[in-house]
Design a protein around this nucleic acid. Structure first.
Lengths: 228, 228
DNA sequence: GGGTTATAGATTGTATACAATGAAGCAGAA
DNA sequence: TTCTGCTTCATTGTATACAATCTATAACCC
């Protein structure tokens, strides 16, 4: 059918944006950090123009905050921000559920199940970077299946921001049960298998509430240690 | 209480973005139009840098499409795009309804009612520009009341895109009943007054479905005339 | 000392120059 | 004719220079 995949020119500004994005998500750039353009210029080996343009992109994604004539700062999330993020994520994922519940087939169920099993394996191997990405891939699969451009874009933005706060959980809430996520995903998959929309929605709410709580606890913990 | 309101420096790129945004929404820039940077440079009296940066912002808002080394083009909406826009708008407005239904008070009901009456007046005066902005203000009031940053941002993006296709309706579907919108708004307001969430959601679905249909009809009409 | 004003340094905002890319048209060969 | 390759031109991508702005520090006055 399709022999070749689309070729897309990738501009410098997008590469720069991706690098900064990853640095924020992985916590190498911390909240409130001042992002100085020339510093990135030197580290990335490009001129200021693509750096500036990348920062504009990231500002639109709410990963950085730009103050005119002052500069760019890594976004710091408040408790209210975290609550807003998760409430929006539930809204979007439940919308996705409505769209895809009658579109998924056996192949999809198998693919989703494979992701769950992979994640299980990675947990046992203590490879938490892959655990995170597989976890993400599970949710992304459902969102992508919606084929709804705005849903996909908005969800990705929200999730990137959540990822940026999740590193807080990793630092603060050191020892939480990774297998809970496995059970969560299985519950969701079962909901799709039996075409029970309400069950899926309830699961989404429950799961996101739990992760939200973990994030909030990590946040307060970090804030109290920052004061001392 | 607060004597002064916050002063916010406004950069050139934001002013440029706003001008282009309005031009697209008002239909002065038409879908598929090639936006050449130097042309805007001359018309706006600024250099290419802020123009470029403004175009990056608008690309993130999906009002223009940027192809590397080719340039920026005003977004052209397909039928699927329009359907996606309205389905997302319903999702967001229903989410807003959940958030604000128990927060609105008599003052809010009065404000919303004033907006409905103003719109009624503007219709009778045939001042359709004010009709549009008052219509928008009604919905915006409800969204803003949610105080949910992501909801507000996502909704504004969606609505800007809808506005960009609504001018199609104005051109294609010349004579539709402006008073329908008045009735719609009254239905929604009544729903809030009696705290009936399901009724509000159903109204939102119904209203957006109707406007979506009008947009789709206008789109097919314009496409058929474009061929001839 | 408390408070205001100058000054210096760093950083961002804007303008412009140069490099790279792609589209269109034309010429020539199969 | 139809395809290929070349050339030109318009336009975007990137780099850099200059202007405007802000922060902080120090000098100054009362």
């Amino acid at each position: 059918m399709t022999v070749f995949s689309q070729i897309r020119a990738v501009t410098l500004r997008e590469q720069v944006a991706e690098q900064i994005r990853i640095a924020i998500i992985e916590g190498r750039l911390k909240p409130k950090d001042h992002i100085v353009e020339v510093t990135l210029t030197e580290q990335l080996g490009v001129s200021r123009t693509p750096v500036r343009e990348a920062l504009i992109i990231l500002e639109r994604e709410s990963l950085v905050v730009s103050i005119p004539n002052r500069g760019c700062f890594v976004r710091a999330f408040t408790a209210d921000d975290i609550r807003a993020l998760f409430s929006m994520r539930v809204t979007l994922e439940n919308f996705a559920a409505e769209l895809v519940i009658n579109r998924l087939g056996h192949q999809d169920y198998d693919n989703l199940n494979d992701l769950i099993e992979s994640q299980n394996l990675f947990i046992q191997q203590n490879d938490f970077k892959k655990v995170r990405s597989t976890d993400m891939a599970f949710h992304q699969y459902l969102i992508a299946a919606s084929n709804h451009p705005h849903l996909i874009r908005n969800w990705q933005e929200i999730v990137a921001q959540i990822a940026a706060v999740l590193y807080l959980r990793a630092e603060g809430h050191t020892n939480y049960d990774e297998f809970l996520a496995i059970q969560d995903h299985q519950q969701i998959l079962d909901g799709y298998r039996v075409h029970n929309l309400d069950r899926i929605k309830a699961e989404n709410r429950r799961i996101n509430k739990r992760v939200e709580t973990e994030c909030l606890m990590a946040l307060t913990r970090l804030q109290s240690t920052a004061q001392s």
